[in-house]
């Protein structure tokens, strides 16, 4: 197998950076839309906040798995 490129050093950190892109965009969208929904309908604040946090938790899990994996498999 021929090596095209090689990377050394703290690759786990690079992996975490890559893993954080998607959730970063997702969390931004969730809170952006959530705030918009609250502004449009302030009386539904309770329900919107709850669903906002739920969506946030689900999106954030991906970033957190990316954070933990380098520790598990060694940097």
């Amino acid at each position: 197998m021929t090596l095209l490129a090689e990377l050394s050093g703290s690759i786990g950190s690079v992996g975490y950076g890559l893993a954080a892109i998607g959730p970063g965009v997702g969390i931004g969208i969730i809170f952006g839309q959530g705030v918009q929904a609250i502004a449009r309908q302030p009386e539904a604040y309770g329900v919107i906040r709850q669903n906002m946090l739920l969506g946030f938790a689900l999106a954030e899990a991906l970033a957190l798995i990316g954070f933990v994996v380098p520790f598990v498999y060694g940097v």
């Binding site: 689900l58 957190l64 954070f67």
Partner: peptide, 13 residues
């Protein structure tokens, strides 16, 4: 898995 990792990883980080 995600249910426990979410809590763990947040506190760990």
């Amino acid at each position: 898995f995600t249910h426990c990792v979410r809590l763990f990883a947040n506190m760990f980080a």
